[in-house]
Every structure is written in structure tokens, then in C-alpha cells.
Amino acid sequence: MTPKVETIAHQFLEALPHAKALSMTLVEISEGGRVVLSMPYDARLVGDPASGVLHGGAVYALLDTASGLASMLHAGSAGSTATLGMRVDYMRPATPGQRITAEAVCYNMTRTVAFVRATATDDDTTRPVATTNATFTNEPRRGARS
């Protein structure tokens, strides 16, 4: 993908306080609205103190951010987006201490709605930690003319 798109994606992540608070970083973007983000293990994000497993909300936030970015980078995007609905399935607890990586694909885009699927894994990439299915709005940037 062109360096320009990568720059936009980096700037997008940098501008999101919640993404920064969770130390999300861009791993890869490719044609057709596919985005890979990752996030380090952080003891402050633990949801089960007995096992040290990350809270589902933190993993969800990574999947949501990757999915939103995927819809914005899709060729049919009008420039801005917001999550309409998202369903997450938690398949297994993420292994404590390991990075979480989320891969999102915007697999269908209409004039008004983006459909995005995403999967999160830890070091064991063969078994997903969580998957999501989401719909996002497809709308022009605020202030821009449609």
C-alpha cells in the first residue's frame, strides 16, 4: 500500500486518545480495506485478577479500532465512520504476557454502510482469542460536502 495511506493510518491512531491509552500500533495495511493492529499485554488491563487474563473490553477496543480503520481505508469510504453495531465472540482467554494482534477486513461496502469482520489472536495465531462482526456508518467527514 502507498506510504501516504500508511501515514494517514498512523495519524489516525495517534489522534485517538483511547487507542493511545491502550498503546495500539499499526502492523500492516493492505489493499481492499485490510488492517492489522496490535497491542501489548498490560497488567492495568487485566479483567480477571486470579488468572491475569486481559479484560474482554480491551481486546474489543483493539478489534473495534482495527475495524473502524478498515472501513475508513476501503476504496468506497466517504471519509468518516462510526460503529453502528458490533458483536464479539470470546473464544478463549488471551495468554497473559502476550501481545494481542487484530486483523480486520472490510468485506462489503455500500454508499452508507461498511461491513467488517475481525479476528484477534495472541502468540498462537492458529486459535483465535476473539472474533467480531460489525457494521459501521459510511459518511462524509464533518464539514465536508457530500
Binding site: H18, G57, Y60, A61, D64, A82, V88
Partner: peptide, 11 residues
């Protein structure tokens, strides 16, 4: 952030 909202609801 949609993720923050979801985390709040899940908690």
C-alpha cells in the same frame, strides 16, 4: 471510543 463504551457496558 466505541471500545470504551463497550468495555463500560461489559464491566
Amino acid at each position: 471510543h466505541g471500545g470504551a463504551t463497550a468495555g463500560f457496558l461489559e464491566v
